[in-house]
Structure formats: C-alpha cells, structure tokens
C-alpha cells in the first residue's frame, strides 16, 4: 500500500526500516504517518524505509491504546524485529492511553506491553513531530552503536 515500501532489510538500507501497527487508535495518527511518508518523497534519503514484514524491520511505529486482543500481536511483532529495536509510541493514546483511559477494554499505553524508546504525544500528531522523533531515534541508535 505504501509507496516507500521496500523488501530490503535494515542493514541493507543502512538506516532504519519501519513497520507500522495500529493498536486501536482513531486512525488520526495513522493517516498522519502516511501523510509524512507521502509529503516528503525523499524520506529515503534520510535512511527511513517502510517495510511490511516485521522480521525485516528494526523500528516499530505503534499508534493507539493496547487492548487484550492486540497485545499478543504487538508482542509477536516486537519479538520478530531485528536488533537493535526502536519503538515509537505515536499519539497521546499510545503514550498513556489518553482519552481512552477509562474504556473497558484498553490496557493503557503500549509501554504496558513492550519497552518504548520515543514517545510522541499529540492528538493527532503532526508530520513534523514524527520526523523530529525519528531524528531523535537515529541519534539514540548511533549512540548505542549500529550493528555493522
């Protein structure tokens, strides 16, 4: 579905390969993630690629609050990802549960299930925030040392 979808792995791209999963937000952040990918057509030059297969990715972009059913899916995606793993919690409800904090079926933010590296609050987030967060994450990745 995505124009920047690539079959290459993170190492081949020499940057970060992003897999996207919606845990149950309102789609507002998801469409902003898509808008980020379309508005800046040379995002690839920054070393950011979107992949469909979690085993080829080293970054996970997750939106929305976790519920009892999709926490298993989220865990399995995280387990299949390559090391070092980066997790972005996009949107207020992915950070803390946000507006859905008292909904019956939600557990809260995605950090209840998997460790999160970068929190991006906002309802919905803006494309500029996502790019800023990715830059922060790339810095974190270079500090920790990239596998060569």
């Amino acid at each position: 579905m995505y124009p920047l979808t690539s079959q290459k792995t993170a190492q081949e791209n020499n940057g970060i390969s992003v897999v996207h999963f919606d845990c149950g937000g309102c789609n507002g952040c998801d469409i902003e993630i898509l808008a980020t990918l379309t508005r800046i057509e040379d995002l690839k030059k920054l070393g950011i690629t979107r992949v469909g297969d979690p085993s080829k990715a080293n970054a996970l972009v997750a939106t929305g609050p976790v519920n009892h059913r999709n926490k298993e899916v989220l865990k399995s995606i995280y387990d299949r990802m390559q090391e070092p793993k980066l997790v972005f919690a996009v949107g207020t409800c992915a950070c803390t549960g946000g507006l859905f904090h008292n909904c019956g079926n939600t557990l809260g933010g995605i950090d209840k299930v998997i460790p999160v590296d970068v929190y991006i609050p906002g309802c919905a987030v803006r494309p500029e925030q996502i790019i800023h967060a990715v830059n922060l994450a790339i810095k974190k990745l270079t500090q920790e040392g990239k596998p060569e």
Partner: peptide, 25 residues
C-alpha cells in the same frame, strides 16, 4: 476485535459534555 476499546461504556461513565470529544475520537 483488534481495535475494540469499549468506548460505549466509557461514554456512560463520562460527563455527557465530555463525550463529544470521545465521539470525535
């Protein structure tokens, strides 16, 4: 069921004026 949140129940717990923002989400 992967994105089920239980939103209708939350709408009963909230103040009816706050539900406007919940329904928008």
């Amino acid at each position: 069921g992967y994105v089920h949140r239980g939103l209708e129940r939350a709408a009963e717990l909230n103040d009816y004026r706050r539900n406007l923002y919940l329904c928008e989400r």
